[in-house]
Write a protein that binds this DNA or RNA. Structure first.
Length: 279
DNA sequence: ATCCAGGCAGATG
DNA sequence: CATCTGCATGGA
């Protein structure tokens, strides 16, 4: 496919490294002062030119939508300030955009993510694409539902999916009979119910799929890091209840707050480790 | 070596 | 409704 080049101006509220490395997406690699990202059957290489980003890709419209340039992040950041933890988290991760990812890709990615480390999640997804996805030359596309459904549980086990192999196999086969495009029309809570009906999808994975795959921002995935971040504020509250309360609090901005909080809380741990190593 | 990771299903109070 | 357990795997 023909390559197109375009530039993205640098703004205080968009940083490619933060956006890719904040844990919302797994199909990317660092390449010098550039990043290569794959999404569905597209790939982009984004280079930091100092004053701007230079993008080389096969579909400009696809990636402009993918990177969510139409949302006013500065306005959201101002709205949700609390003078405390959330403000700190925004200050730290103010360059994050929520990517508009493919629904199927998000569902599969976040089933794999459960009880798993990010580097390992990346490897599992890479092996699924490498084996089942169409060869696009420089990379492999994310596989079609038909491919995912015909692979079989033992395939997913063989590439290291662990106990999630059965989930992936059954969900792929379920989705063969579903029109996911129709799901887009549902309300967030109805769409959450649809996702929760999938084998291996609970509240947390459903909310990640809603946020990253269906661009629903009135969700608040609660994982181990978010639990730690908000446990003092919501003592003795179940993860699901915590999610409900945070959605109530932040409404249409909940998903953004969640991602800033996740990125900040997780980064703080690694900074502590780095300091520990230096001693 | 032991713990833990973007949790979930199933079983049991 | 809430709480408990087993789960595959490999990085830290």
């Amino acid at each position: 496919m023909e390559q197109i080049e375009f530039s993205i101006p640098k703004t205080p509220t968009f940083d490619v490294e933060q956006t890719l490395d904040c844990g919302q997406v797994f199909r990317f690699v660092k390449d010098g002062n550039a990043f290569k990202v794959c999404a569905k059957n597209h790939m982009a290489r984004i280079e930091d030119k100092g004053c701007e980003y230079s993008v080389v890709c096969d579909d400009k419209d696809f990636f402009e939508k993918y990177f969510d340039f139409d949302t006013d992040y500065a306005a959201i950041q101002q709205t949700v300030q609390d003078g405390g933890f959330v403000s700190e988290a925004i200050e730290y991760g103010k360059g994050i955009h929520i990517l508009r990812q493919d629904p199927i890709e998000a569902i599969f990615s976040f089933i794999i993510s459960q009880n798993n480390h990010i580097p390992r999640i990346k490897g599992i997804i890479e092996r699924i694409c490498g084996t089942l996805g169409e060869d696009m030359g420089e990379y492999h596309a994310f596989p079609s539902v038909e491919k995912l459904a015909s692979a079989g549980e033992d395939f997913y086990a063989s590439i290291g999916a662990g106990y999630r192999a059965a989930y992936l196999d059954r969900v792929a086969k379920t989705l063969l009979d579903e029109d996911v495009n129709e799901w887009e029309k549902l309300s967030t809570s109805d769409l959450r119910s649809k996702l929760l009906s999938l084998y291996g999808v609970g509240r947390k994975v459903a909310d990640c799929a809603l946020l990253f795959g269906f661009s629903r921002f009135d969700v608040f995935p609660v994982d181990t890091w978010i639990k730690k971040a908000f446990e003092s504020e919501y003592e003795g509250v179940s993860p699901e209840k915590m999610s409900d309360l945070l959605i109530e609090k932040y409404g249409e901005n909940a998903g953004f707050v969640q991602q800033w909080a996740f990125y900040y809380k997780r980064a703080k741990k690694y900074r502590q480790n780095a300091l520990f190593v230096l001693k």
